[in-house]
């Protein structure tokens, strides 16, 4: 602790470049691992349709499900047009 403080005073902050390596690796892998197979996305889409169909009628043809990446994160973005809400005990308030 004390040594660190003295080091800092003398402008010799320990570089700790391993933390830079770890962070860069984390980001690179986030992007690498996004490259999933088309079958993976199709299966995911089918499962989503199954679940959502319990609650509403959706336009499966125009439905879009994609993984998008920004600089530091990955998001699953879905655009699902709804044709009609289902009436039923679940939907009633």
């Amino acid at each position: 602790m004390m040594l660190d403080l003295i080091m800092k005073l003398f402008g010799k902050e320990s570089s700790g470049s391993k933390n830079i390596a770890k962070e860069r690796l984390r980001l690179v892998l986030v992007h690498d691992r996004v490259n999933v197979s088309p079958q993976f996305m199709e299966t995911l889409k089918d499962d989503m349709i199954k679940v959502i169909s319990n609650y509403m009628e959706i336009n499966e043809r125009d439905m879009e499900v994609n993984l998008t990446t920004s600089k530091s994160s990955v998001a699953l973005v879905a655009n699902i047009p709804v044709n009609r809400m289902k009436r039923g005990p679940m939907a009633m308030k």
Binding site: S14, S15, G16, S17, K18
Partner: peptide
């Protein structure tokens, strides 16, 4: 590794 300059 000890210096924090290599991933452990």
């Amino acid at each position: 590794v000890k210096k924090g300059d290599m991933m452990d």
